[in-house]
Amino acid sequence: METIFFYIIALVALGSGLIVVLCKSPVNSALGLVNTFFCLAVFYVMLYAPFMAAVQIMVYAGAIMVLILFVIMLLNLGTEARKRYTHGVVWAALASLLSLVTFLVFIKKGQITGAAGDITKDVVMSVGHTELIGKTMFTEFLLPFEIASILLLVAIVGAVVLAKKEV
């Protein structure tokens, strides 16, 4: 049953991915992308990572995509932008083709042995995904976490400086 469900969601994810690429109107593409994020969140839930799923929806679908949609609407990217970038698509297509080939090679030649390590499904179910992430983030990965927060602070300060210059 889980496999069938996986295939249904995978189909939806692929379909919305195609919408993102093929739609003429940027707003429809953005909506397709939101749907893709949803499918990714469903995959996280199926992998027993509910925290990741919630954050995926909250950050990507709830915040970043809203901002992107906002920009698309305000700039009103219409026919002009579409004409300018017709040949840019070729590079994107090449890049994605390359990554697809690399992935296929990895799946064929690489050593994928399945899940390993201490944190199994049962541990996640009994302790809770959020608790596990919180603990590792503030003990084992404290330095990367702090670096990320300093980077964000720099970004905030930069944004304020840029915005102040305009006024």
Partner: peptide, 21 residues
């Protein structure tokens, strides 16, 4: 849900799409 409140916050943030669109 193990992540009850996060779920609430996540979907509260999605309501904005309807209005924007």
């Amino acid at each position: 849900l193990n992540i009850g409140i996060l779920y609430v916050l996540a979907f509260a943030g999605l309501g904005v799409y309807g209005i924007v669109l």
